[in-house]
């Protein structure tokens, strides 16, 4: 089973990288972009596992290591 984990900075945390990229997009002709937030995409390849167990274990992985919940939010999707 393949899992895509998305980790993003919490709304309350400033993202200077996102702000810089928003400025760059504006400069190259996309003033429509009002905000850019940059996060991480982490792809996991799991062995044989049930959907339920995968969900529980990936959540644990996020809480323990993949995200720092003091500053980051996470979400994930399971892909067969």
């Amino acid at each position: 089973m393949k899992v895509k984990v998305y980790v993003t900075l919490k709304k309350s945390i400033a993202d200077p990288q996102g702000t810089a990229i928003q400025g760059a997009l504006k400069k190259i002709g996309y003033p429509i972009v009002e905000e850019v937030r940059i996060g991480k995409l982490i792809e996991l390849q799991l062995g044989e596992i049930s959907v339920e167990s995968a969900q529980q274990q990936v959540k644990e992985m996020c809480e323990k290591l993949l995200a720092n919940t003091v500053i980051e939010d996470y979400s994930f999707e399971l892909i067969d």
């Binding site: 900075l9 945390i13 400033a14 200077p16 990288q17 810089a20 003091v70 500053i71």
Partner: peptide, 17 residues
């Protein structure tokens, strides 16, 4: 220490990158 939650808060990218 912040990652281990032995100290509160977190350290993120410097504002000026």
């Amino acid at each position: 220490l912040t990652e281990m939650r032995l100290l509160p808060g977190a350290l993120v990218r410097n504002q000026n990158l």
